[in-house]
């Protein structure tokens, strides 16, 4: 461990704001990459349903 208390860990020797902001942006980028294929998938399913409805008419 590089830190002796939890408070020290979050403070990051007065660089806390920089380090944690960077990691928050990193988390956001990872979340974007995990979630965005789901939107693609939903669009495919909707398109397929529309196609089927058109074929039935």
């Amino acid at each position: 461990m590089a830190f002796s208390t939890v408070g020290e860990f979050f403070a990051m020797g007065n660089h806390g704001l920089y380090v944690w902001t960077a990691y928050a942006v990193g988390a956001a980028v990872i979340l974007f990459n995990v979630m965005s294929p789901r939107r693609l998938k939903k669009k495919l399913i909707l398109d397929q349903k529309r196609r089927e409805r058109r074929e039935q008419v």
């Binding site: 461990m1 590089a2 830190f3 860990f9 990051m12 020797g13 007065n14 660089h15 806390g16 920089y18 380090v19 960077a22 990691y23």
Partner: peptide
């Protein structure tokens, strides 16, 4: 990297980025 790597001598903790 965040909790166990040692502090950098010149840059302090900001290097963890």
């Amino acid at each position: 990297g965040l909790a166990f790597s040692p502090v950098e001598r010149v840059q302090g903790n900001s290097y963890r980025i």
